[in-house]
Design a protein around this nucleic acid. Sequence first.
RNA 1: CGAGGUGUAGCGCAGCUGGUAGCGCGCCAGUUUUGGGAACUGGAUGCCGCAGGUUCGAGCCCUGUCACCUCGACCA
Length: 478
Amino acid sequence: MADSKKLVKEITSMDEDFAKWYTDVCLKAELIDYASVKGCMIIRPYGYAIWENIQHIMDGMFKETGHENVYMPLFIPESLLQKEKDHVEGFAPEVAWVTHGGDEKLEERLCVRPTSETLFCDHFKNIVHSWRDLPKLYNQWCSVVRWEKTTRPFLRSREFLWQEGHTLHATAEEARSETEQMLNVYARFAEEALAMPVVKGQKTEKERFAGAEATYTIEALMHDGKALQSGTSHYFGDGFSRAFGVQYTDKENKLVYPYQTSWGTTTRLIGAVIMTHGDDNGLVLPPAIAPVQAVIVPIASHKEGVLDKARELRDRLKAVCRIKLDEGEQSPGWKFAEYEMKGVPLRIELGPRDIENNQCVIARRVDGEKITVSLDSIETEIPKLLAEAHNVMYNRALERREKMTYTAKTLDELKEIAETKPGFIKAMWCGDRECEDRLKEVAGVTSRCIPFEQESISDTCVCCGKKADKMLYWGKAY
RNA sequence: CGAGGUGUAGCGCAGCUGGUAGCGCGCCAGUUUUGGGAACUGGAUGCCGCAGGUUCGAGCCCUGUCACCUCGACCA
């Protein structure tokens, strides 16, 4: 296992200090740099390339399900933000305000969007008049600002990149099924692109999005046993439509309110990838989003023919993967460590000995294993190895999550687990807010979600002992 | 935002009782090397986080401020 032999010295080991390890990986793998404003990060080319791959794949999934991209303004007039009561209350404490244009004070201050529901509603009001105008299936890629107190790269920054889908439907059923569909898209993306297993479920009322009737979530478990909310999908009913006066004339010639959804994922997904797959040598990237899927490290590259052969190999492999040839002056050992730190899935070593035997050595990032592959079959081998890497990563993450998921029937049991074993705790809940608050108070855990896949652990609430029929995932969250 | 911690070369750190700045790694040049972060020789690098103050003199003392880290409260 790559975890057991630490080859990259510059990174703090996970067991020693997980938070430091995380920061080390972000910086040393050149994903980000800190910016001069607290909580803002510079996403460096390697980190941004990961985001571009995420965007590309996810955007394709949105298009497949009929969505169109739009772009809304960065600013929201205060009066517009005020229109939906719960929504403002939820976001007001963390919005940034623009009060001046040049030296002149603005008539009305503008908030830098923390999310764009209000803007979409305002726009929908103008463009939706008839049942023929529905549905509207919109998405936007942009950045938003939330003035967080505690910040961490990717996991919680004051400005972050995301996508936000906003849709409008004629019926509640259709809107509900959209909400569910997009949650499934997220879950499929997490599993197929990020090799990250997730728990799909509904948020409790306490954890629900400000202004939503229902919030659905995908929850992932990180290496250190903390939960990470990795994507959310909200059903709004007609609440926003009513607040913003979005109306249309239906087939019966009646003026009615449409039903709305929104759903989002952010650059936090990169944090999720780091903390799901990374090890003591650094990043381990799922092949689907790795900027470089295989890197060729020439050995004794000064020797006659080595570089030529390496370049030839690179050109052949361009057709089957994102390939890079490192012709740099550093020693092979240095390069090995460097690309391990950066999480490149496959390393191809090519030296005089290999060339003589018409072969190359391939090292897999996921487990450090080295295999010898004939240069004749390399084009078919690489895709196979990438697919295999993905599966190993997914299965390993799933296995770990299962190992770190516990069940509790009583409050004492739950407290004991929360104190000693990091991970998810499955426990029954009666549905009362007081019990949810109490678990946070006495055990430090929050409800992660009410999973769609229910199982019965007992008949009574883990907290109050009253009758309970809902099983929840609990945990400490990022 | 509350409690605690840390800011000295690109990175990691040392710097005594206040006396004018140092080590390791990295960087640059050259030579030898090249299958797990190579070796040797030579060289460059500092608004001591920032702003005030005390002092003949401040990296060190005082005040303020900013950033980062950890733990809480709030959140994608």
